[in-house]
């Protein structure tokens, strides 16, 4: 690791002030991506601003027809939360499938979505549920939040504080993990919500995306058979030694059907 300064602000205001003062600062939440990146000398920030001192950001609560989860809520806490399990069991299951237990004990919702790794699980849940990201500045609908490979709509000095997930009628997330890293080669989140059916895909492309043809088909009938014949174009999908684009395209359709079946189970 290169040298950097370390700050642990006690409030959001303090954190924002630091962001304003320091040329290149990295926000540290769970650190499960940032620390490996620093270790490999792939980043050299002037400072690391550790948000863990800001206690209020880890809350998990139900607010009417939404589940509001603080940015610093750890994956293990989301997975184990009775509130989450009751309101959106698919979200608890997704959190329970991220990485491994040690990663889940540290990694956070806010860190995951702000990083927007193309193979991360949470972005599929946000997009699939039509969640809203709250920052210290504003509210951003998930549809506008994820903008590209490791890119989001966040401004450089903007900090995610919470995510509000509308509670769906039913939902499921099915992941096809990379056998080595266990990140998603393809992950599909399917939800039947008050605002309609949503299908979001992670892992397959440089950024999480929705699948309108599948949404339309499922809107007509929310059943796995509705997706029979669903064909995904391989153009623009990721290719690597584990899965070429054509295989990923095939897996998107398979995982989507399986997610619907699981949502109905």
């Amino acid at each position: 690791m290169y040298s950097f300064a370390y700050y642990r602000p006690a409030s959001l205001g303090e954190a924002r002030a630091l962001l304003g003062q320091i040329e290149e600062a990295s926000l540290l939440a769970g650190g499960q991506t940032l620390i490996p990146t620093l270790k490999q000398r792939l980043a050299s920030p002037d400072a690391v601003i550790d948000l863990k001192g800001i206690g209020a950001l880890a809350a998990i609560e139900r607010k009417g027809e939404a589940l509001v989860i603080g940015a610093l809520a750890r994956h293990a806490a989301v997975a184990a939360s009775p509130v989450v399990r009751e309101a959106i069991p698919a979200l608890a299951a997704l959190a329970d499938g991220i990485g491994d237990p040690q990663v889940r004990n540290r990694g956070t919702l806010g860190g995951s979505i702000a990083n927007n790794d193309p193979a991360a699980d949470y972005p599929a849940a946000l997009l699939g549920l039509g969640a809203t990201v709250t920052t210290c500045e504003r509210s951003i609908p998930a549809d506008n939040f994820f903008t590209g490979l490791f890119a989001t709509d966040l401004e450089p000095d903007e900090i995610v504080t919470a995510v509000s997930f509308p509670i769906p009628r039913r939902a499921a997330y099915v992941k096809f993990p990379n056998p080595a890293s266990r990140f998603a080669i393809v992950g599909v989140f399917v939800a039947e919500t008050a605002a309609g059916v949503r299908v979001a895909v992670t892992g397959a492309a440089p950024c999480v995306f929705r699948l309108p043809p599948a949404e339309a088909a499922l809107a007509r009938a929310f059943a796995p058979e509705s997706l029979d014949g669903l064909s995904i174009a391989a153009d623009g999908l990721n290719s690597d030694i584990h899965a070429v684009a054509a295989y990923r395209a095939h897996l998107v359709a398979v995982m989507a059907r399986r997610a619907v079946r699981q949502a109905l189970a």
Partner: peptide, 21 residues
């Protein structure tokens, strides 16, 4: 599977992220 890129000779499975233990 230890995989080298045939064009560049780079090791494509150079960590536990890509070499499946």
């Amino acid at each position: 599977d230890c995989v080298y890129d045939p064009a560049s000779g780079q090791l494509l499975s150079g960590s536990f992220m890509d070499y499946c233990m």
